[in-house]
Computed example of a mutant assay.
Amino acid sequence: MELEFQIGSQWIGKNHKPFIIAEMSGNHNQSLERALAIVEAAAAAGADALKLQTYTADTMTLDIHEGDFFIEDPNNLWQGNSLYNLYSEAYTPWEWHKPIFDRATELGMLAFSTPFDETAVDFLESLNVPAYKIASFENTDIQLIRKVAATGKPLIISTGMASIAELDESVCAAREAGCRDLVLLKCTSTYPATPENTNILTIPHMEQLFGSMVGMSDHTMGVGVSVASIALGAVVIEKHFTLKRSDGGVDASFSLEPQEMESLVIETERAWQALGRVSYGPTEREQPSLKHRRSLYISQNLRKGDVLTRDNIKAIRPGLGLPTKYLDEMIGRVVSRDVSKGTPLTWEVI
């Protein structure tokens, strides 16, 4: 029996279309008006859920702008920022959560968030969110996982950077604290990620190893990796989302635009529909197409007693004569009656 559960009214599982999450993150650029426009664009594109991140700079780090608290790595997307300033720019004001969630609900979309500490969980509980997401960088924060799991609500955990041992500890902590409904998302915590560094063959292995549903938190550009992950068993796809990458923002450079999100929704559902079951032979819809195979036909007018040769029988379309595999066996046989050109060759003719 396939695993499945509901988040709000939406079913999650292999018997249901992929559950698509549009991650707003900091792409609102500190404008509530823009945040609400992102909600509207996500709903119009067909996303099932809109997700926020719930923290403040002070719940994430210390107000220090040097040393360990300053990003100097030239390969880091956020190089040249202190952690405190980065989180101050990216955070979603907590007073915005309710109007954002309300707008999503009005548009028929689920809305929930990623809490980054226990105060965020308490705040989100006051808003009665339908589910929780644990970010990759928090997937070893056992205290946070226990706090979220104790709500009894569905839990989605990104697995970026985590070893099997670390994931086992996190999954066990979630289960022991009361989590019944769990999805693990394969994730590569680089921004953007490259397809070569994504390793989605991990998806079925993770599913088998932990006995949970799996999905994809996809930081690559485009939709190809997400579509491919559906074929490997992913039931949830999470993608960062913005109105326009050129508008800038902390996560804009690796976020989907509305037309791309719409494509993600359509193509992942097509991939899911295409999985079907193991099947050989013509499907019911293919049955009419059988007549368009090649088969053996009389290609000249013949009289009773004429001998069949390669000059007077041909393997052609349509497929109403004998299968072409009998061609060699037919050569040298005698027709039993007069036959005209275009007659399908059957056993009754010889």
Rank of each mutant, 00 (worst) to 15 (best):
I12Y: 08
L327T: 11
G276V: 01
D181H: 14
K325G: 01
K304H: 10
N76L: 13
G319L: 12
P130L: 11
F254E: 03
G342V: 13
A228P: 09
L345V: 12
G80W: 00
E66V: 00
D218C: 08
K304I: 03
S229A: 15
S295Q: 08
E238N: 05
N301T: 08
R337V: 02
Y87P: 06
F254N: 00
S279L: 01
D306M: 05
S226H: 07
R103Y: 00
L144I: 12
P74H: 03
G222E: 05
L36H: 07
I164D: 14
E40K: 11
M60S: 09
S163M: 12
Y326L: 10
F254M: 05
S340W: 11
N75V: 06
K133H: 13
R146F: 00
C179F: 07
N81E: 15
A43D: 02
G178L: 12
D181C: 02
E40S: 13
G305C: 00
D247L: 11
I298F: 01
A149V: 06
S299A: 12
S113V: 01
T59S: 15
L201I: 10
D48F: 06
G67N: 00
G152S: 08
S255Q: 01
V236R: 02
G224C: 14
V171M: 08
L232I: 10
K244L: 13
T190H: 07
A22M: 06
M24I: 09
S226L: 04
I266A: 07
S82P: 05
G80C: 11
P323D: 12
P18N: 04
F5E: 10
L3A: 12
A274K: 12
D63C: 11
G342F: 07
Q30F: 09
L182Y: 03
L83T: 03
L86Y: 03
G215V: 05
K133M: 08
A231T: 11
R277K: 10
I145D: 04
S136H: 01
R317F: 07
L50G: 01
R317W: 02
S295K: 11
N199Y: 10
D338I: 08
N312D: 10
K51R: 00
E138F: 12
D311Q: 12
E176F: 04
V349F: 11
D306K: 00
H205K: 15
K341V: 10
P18A: 09
R337K: 15
R293L: 14
R294V: 14
F123Q: 01
P99S: 10
R285W: 15
A149E: 02
Y87G: 05
I237K: 00
L256G: 03
H292T: 14
Q6N: 14
Q208R: 14
Y191D: 05
I200G: 03
M1A: 14
I12K: 10
L290H: 13
V250G: 07
I350E: 09
C172M: 15
L3Q: 15
Q287M: 15
D168R: 12
H240P: 04
I230H: 07
E2L: 14
